[in-house]
C-alpha cells in the first residue's frame, strides 16, 4: 500500500489499450488496413483524446443507453494494466462493438467489426490509466446502443 511506485505507475500507464482477443469470430482492427463500419482502420478515432470526440470520429452519431448491452467489468480492477472487460448483447444485426475508457489519454480502446451471422460477444482486456468510466457501444441495425460502468483503479492496500 501507499507506495509511490504504484502511484507513479498509474501516471505512466499511457498509450492506447493493448487488446487480447478472446471473443469468438471477431475481427479486430489489427493493422491499418481495413474492416469496420466504414471499412477502414479508424485512425482518426483512435487519435482523439475525449470519449465524445472519439465516438464522433468513429460513428458520427450518438449512442443511447440500453439494457440490451450487457457490459461485464470489475468494480475495482485487480490490475489496471489488464482489466478484463466483456460485452454481450441480445440486439439483432450487430455490426460493431467498441470500447471507450473515458480518462485514458486516448479514449477509444478497441473496436471490433462483427461479421454477419456471428455471435455478438467480445471479451478483451483494457489498460486503464486511472479510475474512470468504461463505455461499450454496440452498433446494431445502423443505430448505436451503449452501457457504461465505472471501474476503479486503486493503489491498493489497507484492506481491513
Amino acid at each position: 500500500m501507499h507506495n509511490p511506485a504504484l502511484a507513479t505507475r498509474r501516471l505512466i500507464l499511457q498509450g492506447a489499450a493493448s487488446v487480447a482477443l478472446l471473443g469468438l469470430g471477431n475481427l479486430p482492427f489489427a493493422a491499418p488496413a481495413r474492416a469496420a463500419a466504414n471499412d477502414k482502420y479508424p485512425e482518426e478515432a483512435f487519435k482523439q483524446k475525449s470519449e465524445a470526440e472519439a465516438i464522433k470520429a468513429l460513428y458520427g452519431k450518438n449512442a443511447e443507453p440500453s439494457d440490451k448491452v450487457k457490459l461485464d467489468a470489475p468494480e475495482i480492477a485487480e490490475n489496471g494494466g489488464v482489466v478484463p472487460i466483456s460485452v454481450t448483447t441480445t440486439l439483432d444485426k450487430v455490426t460493431s462493438i467498441s470500447f471507450f475508457v473515458a480518462e485514458n489519454p486516448n479514449a477509444l480502446a478497441a473496436s471490433y467489426r462483427i461479421p454477419d451471422g456471428t455471435v455478438a460477444s467480445v471479451a478483451n482486456r483494457l489498460k486503464m490509466a486511472k479510475t474512470t468510466n468504461v463505455t461499450a457501444i454496440v452498433e446494431a441495425n445502423g443505430k448505436l446502443y451503449s452501457a457504461t460502468k465505472e471501474v476503479k483503479v486503486t493503489v491498493g492496500g489497507c484492506g481491513g
Partner: peptide
C-alpha cells in the same frame, strides 16, 4: 485513493 475505498457512495467500490 484510500479515502475513496472508505467513502465511495457505492459500497461495491469500497474495500
Amino acid at each position: 485513493d484510500v479515502c475513496d475505498n472508505l467513502f465511495n457512495a457505492d459500497p461495491y467500490y469500497q474495500q
